[in-house]
Design a protein around this nucleic acid. Structure first.
Lengths: 170, 170
DNA sequence: TCACAATCGTTAGCTATGAAACGATTTTAG
DNA sequence: CTAAAATCGTTTCATAGCTAACGATTGTGA
């Protein structure tokens, strides 16, 4: 049975918002913009929480710590600065997360000999093994996330989000 | 000029991921699921950071603090428990944020006389004035976020995200 | 009635996070 | 060649955010 009509219905919170804002004077009110912004954040928050509880908690990893380890799993080794750009967090955060991952012996630090200001973070064998066990479960969570959408809808959603990211330089 | 084709192109990180994962045995690999999960989180993170820096920083409010104040602005007064559900954070976080907002004199606490376990958080006049100044700027940020999408695409994106939220109980 | 369970908000302890300051290093201008 | 600027990672400080434990209050079953 199709949920086509139901899906177009606003969420309870969206309805409250709409009612309240009708009393407030705004130069222009774009309800779709509100819905997109609110629902993007809510989806992301829900996904993060679910993954941390059901998957990443096994290894005591936060979402960002997992993302950092994932980047290293893909690339082997990266500078702190590139990691912070890739993850969208500050250098300070990368430094702290690296401390945590170092304590778990999932990564090591190495100073660049050519430029001693640079520090390379490298994934260890233990880190690789953790990722090999963790990633399939993480990916299953991603699959579950979109399992109620058709393949075409998944691709469409990905495309629209990509345009958001590109046009906002995220 | 249309960006139709460009938008379907994977982001650099997505390409790296795709190359790496071809070496790892997975029961099923859904690249669209990866793209959706990754891009939802990246969009949310970018939006949060942008808003906190360009808008909410003026009043020293975090995204969540603003969301809490916004809920109170809409409803006037709410129990701690309902706030935590609405915001998708724990009661402990609501308690902490309430402390911060109380220090700024944007909210007050009131014990429920009928059930002394309940605490109502209420927005103050100063809180209302802050929201009246802040919200138009915040909404402009929401408009900017989706400004490169057509009206139909905005509505479509909102609908798809709503289905993600509903089907995952976010 | 009254012990026990359930419910609520807060606190404690930890990691995460950003801004700002800092120290070390490298690059650049004169 | 050297002083100043730029770059990089870390530290510091504050808030955010989670889990778990706690104290206070209310509901419930015998």
């Amino acid at each position: 049975m199709s949920n086509f009509n139901k899906d177009r219905e606003l969420l309870p919170k969206e309805i409250d918002t709409k009612n309240r804002l009708s009393n407030i004077s705004l130069p222009s009110l774009n309800l779709n913009a509100i819905a997109v912004a609110t629902n993007i954040y809510r989806s992301a928050q829900g996904l993060k929480l679910k993954m941390e509880r059901e998957v990443l908690g096994q290894y005591g990893l936060s979402w960002t710590a997992f993302s950092l380890l994932y980047d290293l799993w893909i690339s082997g080794s990266m500078e702190t600065k590139k990691l912070s750009q890739s993850l969208g967090v500050t250098k300070a955060t990368v430094s702290n997360i690296t401390n945590t991952l170092e304590r778990k012996e999932f990564v090591t630090r190495k100073v660049d000999h050519h430029d001693r200001r640079n520090v390379f973070i490298t994934i260890t064998q233990a880190g690789i093994e953790a990722m090999e066990e963790l990633y399939p479960k993480f990916h299953q969570g991603e699959i579950d996330l979109v399992s109620h959408l058709s393949i075409d809808e998944q691709a469409l959603l990905a495309t629209l989000l990509r345009r958001i990211i590109r046009s906002n330089n995220f």
